[in-house]
Write a protein that binds this DNA or RNA. Sequence first.
DNA 1: ACCTGAACACCGTTCAAGT
DNA 2: ACCTGAACACCGTTCAAGT
Lengths: 205, 205
Amino acid sequence: MQEPDSQISTSYHHGGLRDALIAAGLDILNEENVMGLSLRKVAKRANVSHAAPYRHFKDKQHLLAGIAEEGFRALAQGMTAVLDAYGDNPRQAILQMGHHYIAFGVAHPAQLSLMFSDLLGWGESESLGEAAGETFELVVRMITLAQTAGVVKQGDPEQLARAHWAMAHGLAMLAKEGFLSGEDGEYDQQKSTQALENLLVGMEE
Amino acid sequence: MQEPDSQISTSYHHGGLRDALIAAGLDILNEENVMGLSLRKVAKRANVSHAAPYRHFKDKQHLLAGIAEEGFRALAQGMTAVLDAYGDNPRQAILQMGHHYIAFGVAHPAQLSLMFSDLLGWGESESLGEAAGETFELVVRMITLAQTAGVVKQGDPEQLARAHWAMAHGLAMLAKEGFLSGEDGEYDQQKSTQALENLLVGMEE
DNA sequence: ACCTGAACACCGTTCAAGT
DNA sequence: ACCTGAACACCGTTCAAGT
């Protein structure tokens, strides 16, 4: 077993550069916005030449797809944690899942926008669709648990999951643009709770 | 009274160029996406030099804000039509308002994305905020009408309007990315109806 | 295998100069 | 008042050349 630390910062064999480029892109996205995200800036931040990214991404669109995919995976991971934490209380799980989604949007506005933008080319990356599908499946699982517990009505769980996803996504978009701010100008979580409760009541039949 | 038609296509005095630039930008947005929208391309399509747009927009961000504002105004106009058509049936009005919002997103995906993107600089254009506010007020008015008719529960109409807006916006984003497609791959309006109904039931108390 | 540097056509923005 | 053309620093993408 050798210690590879000595070359980690300058060498990127075995796909290490791919992750470094996505991380660099995420940094730029969080500091600026998608217009400030250039392939050349990403390359510079990863300490490679401006042509190096083309070894790992066909073009800029595919780097953006990689960043979006990372977003779906991070979202799914957080949602899994919520599901684990509130597994015994499906009603709370539904509300907290919504809040988690919205919090992700407020923390990473440009990334969430990117995840639903027209810049990705969904058809060209099966792993992107897979990551988004995994995220949706977690919502479906949550709904199924709630149905079993008698908290929400019976019926197609995917239908109810779509309603929940749409509400959470809509609230996230409104929140990140400041449309859910309170008197102090800060995001007012209570406004999300009210909307999520409205939907929840409707899902109880 | 003179006939100015003869110079309309080549001259843009009195703000005519501003509208022409927004229209050209909209065309490009609908044909490509926000990455393909360059100021130089917009200027060329409006038959002016690449520096001419700076007479009407401080920079690219302000042109984007103008295009987004036009979107809010178009949305508000369509929503007013829905309200007029279903004024005597608040329950239908609520559902049709949602469908209209989603249809706008499916028809103008890049524009709707732009309207909620981080590229606009909301603080720098009061007319943009005004246009968005008008749109929201129409939803509030619809909720108030429904409350008067006893179709939805009493309480802060803005709270219920936010829930409806979030649901409609979330569904629009899901629809334009293909997450609400049926077996044939086309947008399945029924899936939106189901989600909108879920929320509506919850708003009935 | 993976990376580089030069090259090309394109950007956003500014500004002196024209009408 | 409004528009233009040249100029600058920056893009995305390609490709011959290097290790």
